[in-house]
């Protein structure tokens, strides 16, 4: 019965949408990379960089949207490094990605310590506030869940629509998808596989950066070490779960976030008194693994994912 009470409360669904927002950005970013044929395991570290860059910019006096821009730029910078190493040089995407995650995370912690050497409690910033949309936010439950969020959450949904439109309705999107399926055909059309893939990785990484920034600028309002806490890896699972399609990935992120919001609330019920809290905290990770297993049968993996392309080589 307690579960039912939770499920019909507007605050629960609002929390689910809030939890989903950073995942939507980062999942879309990873999806763009993978659609172009590049697995980006730098995602976890790039989210850390984005979280820090956005927060630090605002803490230093920048406007909130400038902060978002900084987070995106920081993500793109590390994305560019990933792209250079993995696309023209064709290095192992596993190794490059993990290297980027380590480099990005360590650089962030280093920068934090250099910028704020004496601080024990990370300072808070004046973050994005909820911006209820008139009329729509008055709809019971749905309206409160979807239309009384911060601007960054709205941006996440808009981004999903834009990514879907570009991928499926524009020549550029067609080229990006083709480069992940059959790069030789793209090359034969006179387009540059290298440029398309690098572009996809850089743009995708920018979105990952914004996803990280959501945590510091719209959720926790401060920067902590290990605050990303595996969210990047979960997004990689969400891309698979969403069968590499933006719409399904968005739904996957919402579904996942609903479960996450549920486990947080269940901890406070009588169930939570009997079961150790760690069991609840394990749920998101176990759920992601389960999602991978369930989807493995009918996954439509981009055919050239993780296959480096070298011109003139067949």
């Amino acid at each position: 019965m307690e579960i039912l009470d939770i499920l019909i409360s507007a605050s629960f669904w609002a929390a689910a949408v809030r939890i989903a927002s950073p995942l939507i950005f980062a999942t879309l970013g990873e999806l763009i990379c993978e659609r172009a044929g590049v697995l980006n395991l730098g995602i976890e570290g790039i989210m850390v960089v984005g979280a820090f860059a956005g927060w630090m910019a605002v803490y230093s006096g920048a406007d909130l949207w400038v902060g978002v821009g900084m987070a995106m730029a920081a993500g793109m910078l590390f994305g560019l490094l990933h792209a250079i190493l993995s696309v023209p040089f064709g290095l192992s995407q596993h190794v490059v990605g993990l290297g980027i995650t380590l480099l990005a995370t360590a650089s962030t912690y280093f920068a934090y310590r250099v910028a704020l050497p004496q601080v024990t409690n990370p300072p808070r910033i004046e973050a994005f506030k909820e911006l209820p949309i008139p009329v729509l936010s008055d709809i019971p439950i749905v309206g409160q869940a979807l239309f009384a969020q911060t601007p960054l959450t709205y941006l996440a949904f808009v981004t999903a629509a834009v990514v879907a439109f570009v991928l499926y309705r524009t020549p550029l999107g067609l080229a990006v998808r083709a480069v992940g399926e059959n790069p030789h055909s793209v090359e034969a059309q006179g387009l540059s596989v290298t440029a398309l893939r690098m572009g996809a990785v850089v743009v995708g990484s920018g979105l990952m950066g914004v996803g990280g920034a959501f945590l510091t600028m719209s959720a926790f309002n401060s920067f902590f070490f290990e605050m990303v806490n595996g969210r990047g890896w979960i997004c990689i699972a969400l891309v698979v779960f969403g069968a590499w399609k933006p719409g399904k990935a968005l739904l996957g992120a919402l579904l996942f976030a609903a479960f996450d919001a549920l486990q947080i609330r269940l901890q406070q019920t009588s169930l939570g008194a009997d079961i150790p809290y760690q069991i609840f905290l394990m749920m998101p990770y176990l759920l992601s693994i389960l999602a991978l297993v369930v989807m493995s049968r009918r996954a439509e993996v981009p055919a050239a994912l993780m296959v480096p392309f070298n011109r003139g080589e067949r």
Binding site: L41, H94, N229, G230, W233, I234, I236, A237, V240, Q278, I279, L281, M282, Y285, L286, S288, I289, L292, V293, S296, R297, A299
Partner: peptide, 19 residues
């Protein structure tokens, strides 16, 4: 099942530390 081991092994790290 062809499930990518990168993600499963990574996620199990988090599960294990909680366990």
């Amino acid at each position: 099942l062809g499930v990518d081991e990168v993600v499963t092994t990574l996620l199990l790290n988090f599960v294990m530390i909680l366990f």
